[in-house]
Amino acid sequence: TELRLDINGREIKVDGADKETLKELLKLAEKNNDEKAIRIIRHLLER
């Protein structure tokens, strides 16, 4: 399955993203107070 998050109005594919990319996405999600995106990205970073 493909995991996509809508961050800042942009749909971004997050599964398969490297750790650096995920960290950047996490910063974006935190800036937007997007709890769902934050939770998902943190979960991916823990893998």
Score class of each variant (00 low, 15 high):
E20D: 11
R10K: 14
L28Y: 11
N8F: 04
D34W: 06
R47Q: 12
K13T: 13
E30K: 06
G16C: 09
T21M: 13
I38A: 13
R39G: 13
R42W: 03
G9H: 01
E24T: 10
T21V: 11
K36G: 08
E2C: 14
E24K: 11
E24P: 02
K27G: 10
D18K: 03
H43I: 12
A29S: 07
N8I: 02
L22F: 03
T21Y: 09
R42P: 00
I12A: 02
R39F: 07
E24F: 09
R4G: 15
E11P: 05
T1G: 15
L3Q: 15
K13S: 10
E30F: 04
E11A: 05
G16Y: 10
V14W: 02
K23S: 11
K36P: 11
N33H: 09
L25V: 10
E24R: 07
H43R: 07
E2D: 15
L44E: 07
L25W: 07
K31N: 09
N32S: 14
A29G: 03
R42L: 12
T1D: 15
E20V: 10
L5P: 15
V14T: 03
N33V: 07
A37R: 01
D6G: 04
I7R: 00
R47V: 13
K13V: 14
E11V: 11
K23V: 08
V14H: 01
T21K: 12
K36R: 08
L22R: 00
K23L: 11
I38D: 02
R47F: 08
I40E: 04
T1S: 12
A17C: 08
E24N: 09
K13L: 14
L26A: 04
L25Q: 01
R42Y: 03
G16K: 13
R47P: 14
L44K: 02
L5K: 08
K19M: 10
I12Q: 03
R4N: 15
I41S: 00
K13N: 11
N33R: 09
H43M: 13
E2R: 04
N8Y: 02
K19Y: 10
H43K: 12
H43T: 10
R47H: 12
L22V: 03
D6R: 11
E30H: 07
E30W: 06
L5R: 02
R10W: 07
K23Q: 08
I41L: 12
G16I: 15
L28F: 11
R10A: 13
I7P: 00
R47G: 13
L44W: 15
L26M: 09
E35N: 08
I40R: 03
T21E: 08
I40D: 04
N33L: 10
L28H: 07
I40P: 00
E46M: 06
I40K: 05
K27H: 11
K36E: 12
K36N: 14
L44R: 03
D15T: 05
N8M: 09
G9M: 01
L5G: 12
I7M: 05
E35F: 06
A37N: 05
D18F: 04
I7A: 01
E46H: 06
A17P: 04
E20F: 04
R4T: 15
L26I: 06
N8C: 12
L26F: 05
L3I: 15
D15H: 05
E46Y: 06
L45R: 01
E35Y: 06
A29Y: 03
K13R: 12
K19P: 06
A17R: 12
E35H: 10
L22W: 03
G16A: 15
L3Y: 02
K23T: 07
D18T: 06
R39N: 13
A37F: 02
L5E: 15
I40M: 07
L22I: 05
E2P: 00
I41R: 00
R39T: 13
E2A: 02
G16Q: 13
K36V: 10
T1K: 07
A17L: 11
G9R: 00
H43C: 09
N33M: 10
E35P: 06
E35M: 08
D6P: 02
R47M: 13
V14M: 02
E20T: 08
T21L: 14
E30Q: 09
I41E: 00
N32P: 02
E2K: 03
I12H: 12
L26Q: 04
I7D: 05
L28T: 06
N32D: 11
I41Y: 00
L22S: 00
G9Q: 01
E24G: 08
G9D: 03
K31Q: 11
N33F: 09
K36W: 05
L5F: 06
A17D: 14
T21N: 10
L28A: 05
D34L: 09
T1L: 14
K31T: 08
T21A: 14
L25M: 05
R10S: 13
A29C: 10
I12P: 00
R39C: 10
N8P: 00
E30M: 08
L44S: 04
V14Y: 01
I12N: 01
L22Q: 01
A37Y: 02
K19V: 11
E30P: 00
K36L: 12
R39Q: 12
E35W: 07
L5T: 13
